[in-house]
């Protein structure tokens, strides 16, 4: 899993690339939460375009980022969510908490 982050004008963007499972979940949570603590962004965009596979670990990752951003009064937006990852997230009901931009074809 490759994690790339960029902070600009109050917005933290996180690009995830690879398979999102339990093996990489802790690393993502730690990396992103460290960035959030450092930049104190107003919004956090998670770009899922490069995520080929995701299991319930993805729910835990997004929930954790959401909780940290909520503490700061910020928002979480998920971008380029694939069809399968969407199916996993929909089961969890997390779509009621975070913003999801249009589903990637």
């Amino acid at each position: 899993m490759k994690i790339t982050t960029e902070y600009r004008h109050g917005r933290l963007t996180v690009w995830l690339n690879g398979e999102l499972d339990h093996h990489v979940a802790k690393d993502i949570i730690e990396t992103v939460c460290r960035e959030i603590d450092q930049c104190l962004p107003l919004s956090c965009f998670i770009d899922m375009k490069g995520v080929g596979f995701m299991d319930s670990s993805g729910i835990a990752v997004i929930l954790k980022i959401y909780k940290r951003m909520k503490e700061l009064g910020g928002t979480v937006i998920i971008r380029n969510l694939g069809k399968h990852a969407r199916k996993v997230l929909d089961i969890s009901g997390i779509n009621r908490l975070v913003n999801m931009e249009e589903v990637k074809a």
Binding site: H22, I29, S92
Partner: peptide, 21 residues
Amino acid sequence: QPMYTTGGDERSGMGFTIMES
């Protein structure tokens, strides 16, 4: 049960729910 977990922060408690559905 959905959301039930003893696995800590990196777990969501949705594993069995996903297997079931």
